[in-house]
Amino acid sequence: MAAAANVPADMAPAAPRRRFRPSGIAGWVVWGLVAFFFLNLFALIATVVLDSIATTWFGSWLPDDFTNHWYGDAWAEFNLSDILVVTAQVAVIVVVLSVLIGVPAAYALARRNFPGKSIITVLFLLPILIPPITYGIPLATVLYKVQLAGSITGVILANLVPTVPFVVLIMIPFIEQIDPKIESAARMCGASTVTIFLRILGPLMIPGMLAAAILVLVRTVGMFELTFLTSGPTSQTIVVVLYDAVFGAGIRAPQEVDAMAVVYTASMLVLLIIALRFVNPTQLVTRVGDR
C-alpha cells in the first residue's frame, strides 16, 4: 500500500518530469511563501536547540558560550529516564492493544455488509473526528470516578479511544484490497479458520499493520490532551512533563526545559523517520479526509 501510494497517479507516463524551477510572478510568490514558512520554522527549532546548549543567551545573535550540562541537569531534575520509560510503556501497550482490537473489527467491516453497518462505521469515526479535549473531559471525569485516572492504566485506556478507530480506519481499505478468493481457496484446501488467519491473512496484512502501528506510536507519544487530562504524577508522558515545565509553577532554567524539548523532538523525529519508511507523509495527517 505504502509503495503504491508514493507514486502520484496524476500525470500520464508520457508527461515530462517538471523541473524544480519557479516561473512567473505567481510561481515566485508561491515558492517564496513556502521558503518563508520553512525559514521561520527552522529558526524556531534552532532557537530551542541553541538555547539548550547555551550558557547564557539574551539579546545577542548567538549565545555567549556553549555547554552541555543542561542535558545532565534536566535528566536528573525531571527524572527523564523514568519519564521515558513511562512514555515507552504507554506507547507500546497502546499500540499492541489497538492493533489487537482494531484489526479484527476492520476485517469484519471490510468483508461484510450487514444491517446497521453505517451506524457502526460512524461510531468508529466519531472518536477521530471529535477533538480529544472535547470528549477527554467527560472521559477523565468517568476515569476519576472509577479511580483509574492518575494511573498508567487510565492513561492507556484514554489513549486507546482515538487509536483503536484509527487502526480500523487504516486497515479497512488495506483488507479490502486483499482478494477474498485467496481465503476461499485456502478453505477449499482444508485450512481451518485459525490457519487462514495465521498463515494466509496474517502475512498479507503485516505491511498494513506495521503502518498502523507506527502511526499509532507517533500519535500516542505526541498525544497531549488525553494524557494531560488523565495522568497523575507517576504516569506522565514526556509531552505532559514538558508542558508542566513550561507552564507550571516553579523556577527552572529555561535551558533545562529546552534540553528536554530537544530530547522529545529527537525521539519524535527518530519515530517519524522510521514511520516514513513505511508510510506516505500524507498518511500521517490524513485521518478521514482521504477515504
Binding site: 520553512f38 521561520n40 520554522l41 529558526a43 524556531l44 527549532i45 532557537t47 530551542v48 538555547d51 507517533v218 505526541g222 497531549f224 509531552v239 514538558l242 508542558y243 513550561v246 529555561p254 526545559v257 529546552d258 524539548a261 522529545y264 523532538t265 519524535m268 523525529l269 519515530l271 517519524l272 516514513l276 507523509p281 500521517l284 495527517v285
Partner: peptide, 21 residues
C-alpha cells in the same frame, strides 16, 4: 517529508520555540 516536521514538534515544543523566537 519536511512538512511533517511540525507534526513531530507537537504543540508544546512549538509554543516553547515561539516564545523564544
Amino acid at each position: 517529508t519536511l512538512l511533517v516536521v511540525p507534526i513531530a514538534l507537537g504543540t508544546v515544543l512549538t509554543a516553547d520555540g515561539l516564545i523564544e523566537y
